[in-house]
Write a protein that binds this DNA or RNA. Structure first.
Lengths: 228, 228
DNA sequence: AAATGTGAAGAGGTTCACAGCG
DNA sequence: CGCTGTGAACCTCTTCACATTT
């Protein structure tokens, strides 16, 4: 089950937790870059140094604003100690616990997502995989059996996943989303190009691959500047 | 090669072309919804009706603002004629021409992307596929042969792709990006969690799957509201 | 001297409220 | 009267500039 507001776990001063959806991926990028820096033996970093590590995609000012919102982590004139910074970021990002993920749709996209999770993010466990194609049901993927989507409710009653990934065709997305939500899943990552309507209080995040492509084709057609 | 500014192709009045990166995916969603509505036999739609079709993810005011920037497409008191609206959206989105896409990395993610393109977006042609694994090189995917990444330059000289998709491991992403850009690719969709540095004027768009997931875990941990 | 932390200014995008037209 | 089109208000996020601390 989901933990309650974890404010009690936060370090003193880190009360301004609610970060906006734009800020969170930045914090995640800091976490990733700092973990690498730490693995390389570094123990301290400045906001400018971190901007360097990030390829100057984010300004040092922005980094300081983001980090100062997490609590008193820096030392003026010195920079930030990496270790406590990583810990605090992990806490705010919700990475200090494991998450169980249910993947609905085990075509190439579902498969890609599962593989990606297994390879890179060890706090995310693929707890259940569903598909409705007889040729896929029964397959094993890293010890997880692909189950018939028809028995989704029964399977989720066993494994209790918090996050669902919707990698089914658009026409099937809404129905699956509703059933996942009904079965206790509290957050959905949706790859289908439809806006999901869910009755339960569920966090939905859409990834629209075609939409991303359209940004490129638009800018290529009316090429005004080249950045990212 | 890339077309020059296509302003001459635009209907009279549609001079305010440069849409922001937030607006373009909205326009794309309109295009998708309108195409469905047209297929269902509708010929006219109001901003409120379109908002309905989109599941109220976007307000009718926002829709009117977006559409009015494309030119004089609406009729007060009546709504918008669907056909010209679709045409104009396609034009602004760069969807009136075909695009050739090179996919670098044909693991599950590259495979998923290719399949997704083939299934849903017929204006996007998979023109080349590269990988460096001997077990993948030489495979055929819908008539496209997976080529050795080592011969990327030679292959791209033949097919002239405008868009590159980077679906290789993070460690290999930068090098591949540079070679794609050097070979004439003008836009990159990057799935690797690194910020690409490219010398040529290239449009880069990053999709950070882990970052998206982190939004969910953050909000689940400090569950403040459930929207979207 | 060096780097953080932050109020204030700025930029960008969305919503409001209503004028304008068919 | 209905629905578009749009200036103004509003809100959110980013950048600037500098006071503050080690």
């Amino acid at each position: 089950m989901i933990e309650p507001i974890a404010a009690a776990l936060l370090k003193p001063g880190a009360l301004r937790i609610a970060q906006s959806d734009v800020a969170i991926p930045r914090l995640f990028a800091y976490h990733r870059a700092l973990a690498q820096a730490e693995a390389a033996g570094k123990t301290v970093v400045t906001s400018i140094g971190l901007a360097d590590l990030l390829g100057h995609t984010i300004s040092s000012t922005q980094i300081r604003k983001d980090l100062s919102a997490l609590g008193p982590l820096g030392r003026r004139g010195q920079g930030y100690a990496i270790k406590p910074l990583i810990d605090q970021l992990a806490l705010v990002l919700g990475l200090e616990r494991d998450w169980r993920i249910a993947i609905a749709g085990f075509g190439f996209l579902g498969h890609a997502f599962a593989t990606f999770l297994a390879a890179r993010e060890e706090r995310f466990k693929v707890a259940a995989i569903f598909d409705n194609s007889p040729s896929v049901i029964g397959q094993e993927w890293q010890g997880v059996r692909v189950e018939d989507a028809a028995s989704l409710e029964a399977a989720l009653a066993r494994v209790d996943a918090q996050i669902g990934v919707i990698a089914v065709p658009a026409a099937a997305a809404q129905a699956i989303a509703g059933r996942l939500a009904q079965s206790g899943v509290r957050a959905l990552l949706n790859f289908a190009p439809v806006s999901l309507r869910v009755r339960q209080p569920v966090i939905v995040r859409n990834i629209d691959l075609a939409g991303e492509l359209s940004i490129l084709t638009h800018r290529l057609s009316f090429a005004q500047g080249y950045t990212n």
